[in-house]
Computed example of a mutant assay.
Amino acid sequence: MKSIEEVEALEKLIGQLEGLHTEISQLARKAPNDGLNKFKLNLVNKVIANGNRLLQGRYRPFDDFEQFDEDNLPTNSDVTMIIAQYMEQTERFRSDNVTHERSRWWYVVNNAASNLSARMPTTVGGEKK
């Protein structure tokens, strides 16, 4: 990662994706084929737009996916599936940008360990950017 602001944006994205996934998964269990309302869809699209800005190259879940179409409301299960893909790739990006030093995990900023503590990576392997 290039900056502390990018780390902060990543942490915010992770929290938003987890929250959306929890809420929309509950809707999908009750009514998987119902369309998401426009208010929720707007929030989902904002989070996806942030994900698309942050997750570049091999980390972007779908090269050609920008957002859901507001005029053709996606189903709860469609949204849950897409959010799950963004969660997976966000975790892969996070895991590829942490390092273990001084008995702790730290975010890597500008190719060096920062002073921002991180969780242990969950995705092993992959190339570092």
Rank of each mutant, 00 (worst) to 15 (best):
F39A: 06
L43P: 00
T122P: 03
E101Y: 08
I4T: 10
L13Y: 09
E101V: 12
V44S: 06
P74S: 06
S25D: 08
V109C: 02
A31I: 03
W105T: 01
T75G: 08
R94Q: 00
K46Q: 15
P32M: 02
S114I: 06
N76Y: 11
M1P: 04
P32I: 03
K30Q: 13
Q56V: 15
V109N: 01
M87F: 01
N45C: 09
G19L: 15
N72P: 03
I48T: 01
F62K: 10
Q67V: 05
G51C: 01
K12C: 08
A113G: 06
G35H: 03
D64R: 13
F93C: 03
D63K: 14
V44P: 04
L13C: 12
N52F: 08
V124L: 13
E66I: 05
G51K: 09
S103W: 09
H21T: 04
L55M: 08
I14F: 10
R60P: 01
T75E: 10
D96R: 09
E11W: 00
E18P: 01
L10H: 05
N33E: 15
Q89S: 03
L20P: 11
N72R: 12
A28I: 03
N115R: 11
Y86N: 08
D78A: 11
M81A: 12
Q67P: 04
E23K: 12
V47P: 04
T122I: 15
V47Q: 00
K2H: 13
V47M: 01
I82D: 03
Y86H: 06
R119L: 15
S114L: 05
L13S: 09
T22P: 04
M1I: 08
V98R: 08
I48R: 02
T90W: 00
R94V: 02
E66H: 03
M120I: 12
W105M: 04
A49H: 09
L116K: 13
K12H: 12
F62I: 10
Q67I: 04
M87N: 05
K30I: 13
R119Q: 14
L27E: 12
P74V: 08
E5A: 13
T80E: 15
D64M: 06
N76D: 06
Q67N: 12
L20A: 09
G35P: 12
F68H: 01
T90P: 00
F68P: 02
K2L: 14
T75V: 07
L55W: 09
G57D: 09
N42Y: 10
R102H: 14
Y59W: 09
E6F: 06
D63Q: 14
H21P: 06
E11I: 02
S103K: 12
S3C: 07
N111Q: 14
I24G: 01
T99L: 03
L116I: 14
Q16H: 14
G125E: 05
Q67F: 07
A9M: 10
V108H: 05
G125H: 00
V98F: 10
W105S: 07
L27C: 13
E23F: 13
S3K: 01
K38P: 01
G15H: 05
D69M: 12
S77F: 09
Q67S: 15
